[in-house]
Amino acid sequence: MALGSSDRSVGTASPASGVPLTRQRGRHTGVGRAHPLVALLWLSPAIALIAGIVVFPSVMLFQASRSRYSITGLRRGEAGWDNYANVLTHPDLPVVLRNTAIWVVAVVALTVVISLALAQLLVKDFPGRRVVRWAVIVPWAASLVITSQIFVLLYDYNYGLINHVLTTIGLRSESIDFLGDDRLTMASMVVVGVFVSLPFTTFVFIAGLNAIPDEVVEAAQVDGASGWQRWRMIILPLLRPALMIASVLNVIYVFNSFPVIYTLNDRNPGFSHDTMITFMYKLAFKSQEKDVGMSAATGVINVLLILVVVVVYLKVINWREETR
């Protein structure tokens, strides 16, 4: 993004900058071209930013992943690929990968489905729409840790509001251990994951729906398409770009989600409900390994993993489009 926007500024801003040389160059080489040095000058803030916050940490991360660390954090020398081997042969890795898959697929799928419905509702005109739209944004504006902590209180076995309601109205005689019962922990976390992902996704869909011209829908209506047919055959295909953006961004965002899982899972020992992200954190600071090198290796693996998932997803989408 940063690169793109400053790229554009090369074309528009340099002729206006008032330096005669630039204008001359511009005339010689045609509209929208600039001397490489001038371009570099304009690009330099963006390049510096990217070098500073993307390239440099990545290099350091990779370096760390190839180093041997003491439990204190002291670097003890080169480790070769040992850290990677240790991560890949970690006995809990299969469980963590499975959790990650469930977490990402469940949260993204539920988010997209619910957001579609919500967006459909929110583009309709009804009294109080503005208020409802604001209400949908709120979970987005709140800090993830605070939201998660509120859910911890809601879910609590002894004092939680949900259990209080369930037992008071007599639906349950005993409290449900939402966060401690192994069968429920992941589901309870997914609910929170969906809750915090809804606002963004819903607003992407609202934008998408607003971009669909009314004429198309009206034409379908005139041709006798039922409500469901109109939605399925007209609106959904036209929403495809919004759907794709929403799901790709959500996959990345949900995969990298740390606070929800860390906060809700904090009472559970071991890695039985961790995803790759909290696994990475625990390897560095909480688990018996307490190894910065292994954690860094997991970080590199995570980047590759999410890259592969997104590339594969995009390929699948394209393939479907071509075969249609």
Binding site: Q63, L74, R75, F258, I277
Partner: peptide, 18 residues
Amino acid sequence: AAGVMLLAACGGGTGAGS
């Protein structure tokens, strides 16, 4: 968690000290 997210962003901290 704020610190952690920083960490998650750069993936495990850096470490060039010897």
